[in-house]
Every structure is written in structure tokens, then in C-alpha cells.
Design a protein around this nucleic acid. Structure first.
Lengths: 196, 196, 196, 196
DNA sequence: AATGAATGAGTGTTCATTCAT
DNA sequence: AATGAATGAACACTCATTCAT
């Protein structure tokens, strides 16, 4: 009668519903009642599947960061050329971010909230690895003579990172395809806007 | 011991205190009790000076945007050269953003919240003017041959804007002076990271 | 010990409790905490059943007016004789008002508050229908020669209406039965106090 | 420079302003801030003239009841004829009520609030005297054969009293003059609406 | 006679969470 | 797996009142 799904499928479905709402209005601004409404159940019933709202957030966020880091690690493992590595990082980020739109907006809207809690300590850890990867590649590029010698790697990273995390940018639209966005970004990053 | 201040000074002081808290933890995440605590008064007493929490936010946000727009308008009024105009915009933004750190984090954390309310309609208006200014200058630069002809002005703006609005970047630190940050950014913007 | 009731019974019970308090001290003067106390729960728990204090008032008031208007409509549908119609209106009002004591005091104490809100616009609408019904019957009685020709229908209605809405009068007491009250009122209305 | 008024004039002016607001929105629903605003001063400054909001209400209410009772006493002192006495009571009430519109609405909206407080005990006392006066005259009229013998004096009073206290009725309008209202009421009271 | 700042108790409301059924 | 009812702490806000200046 009811199309019986496996328990974990039901659970995954709820996480996805919650993620959509988190993406739309932020983690804190989304109430468990809204999540439950979207699922067609009562708010209390959610606690049969999760022991807290934060545990839903945890699930979304940790899956996202594992995915991101996997992309970064693969990018630097596959190639010795820093320019190619950075290009690969950017391209892998595009794909990853497209898959985890909810996680991204959650981090942007409520970074302070999450990063302050012990439970989400892995957020800071992951961000450090991401930063270090960028700095490493930028420094190596300076040594190979591919990147400008006067580049401050850390400063450049800070200036660049957020461009990568703009959720709107990463949603292919009627105006720009994903490819166009990535190419535009890489062109900007490597060559700037000035005619040489 | 009580240093008598002018009537409006007290009010301005409270706005500053509130702004610091908003910057630190977001507008919504900051309670009026926390603001009152910071001022050493009771929460209800705040309403002697403001008629709502939102009106404090309004004061901070509108002051910020007026300041930003003034900088943009002056930048394009003073010069006909698009490259110089953009450089001027970036430099004025640096100064403005340094003066309005609270407003910036408020917008980043709670953009959805504010932009959805009629009271804050001016936020969207201002953002449109900012976007248009960037696109205008980028297009003009393409026509003068200063910028690459294949530049998608709108896409480039979207990619660039947020780099300008990173509050962390704009706080001069022990590591980087404001000058260094601006120069690094302009270098990146105009020339990219690659050795020509 | 807990007598299991149907879901909506609980809700109806709360409405009744709230109505008693509203009748006793007025709608505005009654706090949601008092209602909750009367129900033996916490104030916040009321919001599981209602989405606002006003929605409780709405429920009470609209039920009352529907009942009143039903009585009026039936009275004028059943009879063509204006004197009988008015007598029927008075008798039906007696019954209705006895069933809705809370609504009546709410309207008397907080008419200004309610009638000013769009949500309660139906209050004014209903009052207009009530007034029109009275005026119609009084005018018809003048034409049939049953009522004095010099009667100002509108003025008479205004003078009469509130006599019908006195909650104290409509509570049968040790002193007077409901029948006595209605008869007294009708006698007064039709014949005055003077010996003919 | 400033047109200096006597202290008591200023005070009386404030009482009048407050009374207007009380009449418009009820005693409890009117805030001291609103009174102060109407007077062009700050709310705290009112406490230079009155020691509480209730003391303003007290002033208005006690003046009203003294006036009402004076009218009643004079009416029964001047004449031995109960019908004339009642007519005189009604006529004097009209005048009095016109002069104390604020007091009347205050009593109607917030009777429960006032009558429950020891400070306003005189309200109940005065109402008792009013009731007794009506009953006395009605009984005497029955004995003289002027009023119907089957009249329940107490019930009739209850049914009549509120008709006298309708503030809207007592404000002469474009539609009805004060005279018309009084005459209409007396006609209704003595003769009813039926053609003899 | 008035200001400007503050108090403190209270208001309606929200929301993550719990739990017996 | 879900319901329906409730909790309890917090929230933004109100308002009569006080008081030093």
C-alpha cells in the first residue's frame, strides 16, 4: 500500500528536505517545524530519526567537507604542476559545490554559529587544510617561475577563496553555463582583466 | 565620574555597541538583552532610544550604503578612464568598508532576512547601483581596449564583488597593512597571478 | 484518571476557559499566561493549539455573531408581521446571548480594539445587518399602523439595541427567570411604563 | 513670552487632554506617553502634576459622579410627582453626560478595572444611589397609579439604565439634536412603540 | 516645570525538545 | 514511525513610574 522504503532512504530524504530549507533561509532561520512540514509529519516526529536539529546540520556539513577535501587531495596528487593543480582544484570545487548547495549557504550564513561549537570543530580543521593547499601551490608556482614572484601567497588565498564559495555563481543559469563560469574565473585568476 | 555627553552622543554610542555585537555574531543572533548588557542597562531601556531592534540595524545599514555609494559616485565623476575609475572604486571601498565593519558582516550573515523586508528595500536598490557601476566601467574599458574584449562584464562583476566585501580582508593586521591589501587586490584584478 | 478526549475537544475546552476569563476581565486585560494557568499548562503551550491570542478571540466572536445573525434571519423569514418579528428577535437574542456571555462582554469592553482591526471587519458588517433588520421592522410596523407614526426608526434602534446587549440582564438569577426578563423587556418596549 | 497660565489651569488642561484620549480609546488602552505627547511634553513630566495615571482617572470620574448625583438629587427634591421626577432625571442626565463624555466611556470600557479597586469604591456607592433613586420613583409611580402596577421596579431599572449611558446617543449629531434624543427616549420610556 | 535616562515587571510569542500513546 | 500535547527557556517589546539634573 505505502511504497515502503528502507529506513535509511527515508532518513536521507529528510536530510535532503532539510538541506533545501537550510540553503534557502539559513540553518538557524529554519525551524524544525518547517522541516517537518516539508516532510508532511509533525515536528516531534523528526526526533525519531535525528536526535537534534544540529545533527542534521552535522550530516550535511561533514558530507560536504569530505567531498571538498577529496577533490583537493586528488588534485594535488595527480599533478606536479602548480598551475594545473590550481586549475584542477577550481574545476573540482565547481562540481562539489554544485552538489552541496545547502552546505555552502549554511556555512556562509551561520559560520560563526557552527565554528564556535566543539561538535563542528572539523570545520576549522578542514578550512586549514584548504588554505594550506592553496598556499602550497601558490608558493610552488612562484618557485617554478610560473607565478609572479611578488605574490603574497596567504593574502592571495584570502582574496581568492571566497570567490570560489559564492553559491549564486555556481548555479548554472540561463545566462551562464558551469563551464563558462569556471573558465571565466580561471581566466580572471591567471590573467586578470587587463589586455596584456 | 559620569562624563556628560550631548544627547545624541549617547544614542550614537549605543549604535556602535550594537554594531560591534552584530558584526561579531550576526544581527539576528544578537539579542537586545546582549546589547543592553553591553551598555550596562536593562533591555527595556534600549527602547527609550530606539523603537525596535530593526531600527538600530536600519541606522547602521543605511549609513553604510550611503557611504559606499558616495564613494562609487565620486569615483566615476572624477575620471573618464575606466581603469582609473575601478582603481578608485576599490580604494574608496577599502576605506568605507573599514569604517563600517558591522554593516558588512550584517549583510553577509543576514542578507536574506534584511532584503526580504520592505523596510530594507533600499538594500536591493543600492546593490543594483553598485552592480551597474561596475558593469559600466568594465564595458567602457573593453571599448577603450584597456580590458580584454572577451570579458563578460556581468559575470566578472559577480566574481569580483564579493572579494571586495570580505570583512576579514579589510581589517589591517599585523601581517598586512591596508595599502598592501589594496595593492594586492588591484594587482590580482588587473594582471592575475601569472607571470606575463 | 486522564479522561481521553477527542483532539478537538481539548481545543474547544481551552476556548471555553479563555472565554470565561475574557468575560470576567475583558479580552485585553486577560493575559495568555492567565489562560494557560487556568488550563494548567504553560503559556507557550497554548500556541500548540492557537496561533495567537487574537485567534482565540476570533473563534469566540465569530461563533457568536453567526449565531446572532441566524436568529435574526430566521425571525424575519418566519413572519410577515413586524410586531411578531421583533418579539421573535428579542426572544432569539435572549437565548443566543445566554449561550455567548463571553463574546458579549468582550465586545462591550474592547469594541474599539476589535473593530479597528481588519481581521475583525466582520464585526462591523454584522452590526450593520442587525441595525438594518431593526430599522426595517420598525418602518414596516409604522406602515401597518402598528407602531407610532412619529417613531424615528434609527434613533429608536440606537436607544434599544444596547438594552438587548446587557449581559448582566440575561443571566437568569435567583430574582428573575429568563422568561420574566424577556417579558419585562417586551412589555416595556411595546407599551412603555405608563398606565394607558 | 510664554503665556503664563496659573498652575491649576495647566493641570486642568492636562486632565482634559487625558480625558479626550480616555474617551477615544479607553483608560487602560491609553498610555501615559500618549497623554504626554498630546500635551507636547515627555511622559515623565506628567508626574510633576499627577502622582499616577490613576489619579488622573480619579479626577475625571469623581467629578462626573458628583455632577450626576447632583442632578438626581435636585430632580427628586424639586418635585413630588414621580413621572415629572423621572423626566427631570433623564433631562439632567442628558446635560451631565454631554459634559463628561470621557468619564462615561471610561466607565463603560473599564468598569471592571475601576470598580475592583478600593480607591474607586465611590463608584459602587454612587451607582447604588442612582439605582435606589430610580426604584423609589418607579415604586411611587405605581402607588399613585401613574405606572403599571405589574412593573418590576428593579428589573425595569436595570433594563433602562444603560439606555441612558450610551455615549453615542448623547452626542447631538447632524441627524438628531439633543432635544430630539431626550424626547425620543422619554416617549419610548413612558409609552412604548405601540400605537395605543 | 520639564528633560533624558533608566527601571522592572510584565506582554504575546517562538522554538527545539520530550514523551506517553 | 508517527501523533498530540506539553515544556521551558528565551525573545522582542511595552509601559507606568522614578529621579538626578
Amino acid at each position: 500500500m505505502t511504497n515502503a522504503k528502507s529506513p535509511s532512504e527515508r532518513r536521507a530524504h529528510l536530510v535532503r528536505l532539510a538541506g533545501d530549507l537550510f540553503a534557502e533561509k539559513g540553518f538557524r532561520a529554519t525551524t524544525v517545524r518547517e522541516i517537518a512540514d516539508a516532510a508532511g509529519i509533525l515536528s516531534g516526529s523528526l526526533y525519531h530519526h535525528f536526535d537534534s536539529k544540529e545533527s542534521i546540520g552535522d550530516e550535511i556539513l561533514s558530507a560536504f567537507l569530505e567531498d571538498v577535501l577529496a577533490g583537493y587531495r586528488e588534485a594535488i596528487r595527480e599533478t606536479a604542476d602548480p598551475r594545473t593543480a590550481i586549475e584542477q582544484i577550481v574545476r573540482s570545487s565547481t562540481a562539489t559545490l554544485g552538489r552541496h548547495r545547502a552546505a555552502l549557504t549554511m556555512l556562509q550564513n551561520d559560520w560563526n554559529y557552527f565554528s564556535g561549537q566543539p561538535r563542528f570543530a572539523y570545520l576549522r580543521t578542514a578550512m586549514k587544510e584548504i588554505e594550506q593547499t592553496w598556499i602550497d601551490q601558490l608558493e610552488r608556482g612562484k618557485q617554478t617561475g610560473q607565478f609572479r614572484a611578488d605574490l603574497d601567497a596567504r593574502l592571495t588565498y584570502r582574496l581568492l577563496r571566497d570567490i570560489l564559495w559564492l553559491p549564486t555563481s555556481w548555479r548554472p543559469s540561463a545566462t551562464w553555463s558551469t563551464e563558462q563560469i569556471v573558465d571565466g574565473l580561471l581566466r580572471l585568476l591567471f590573467d586578470g582583466i587587463t589586455v596584456p
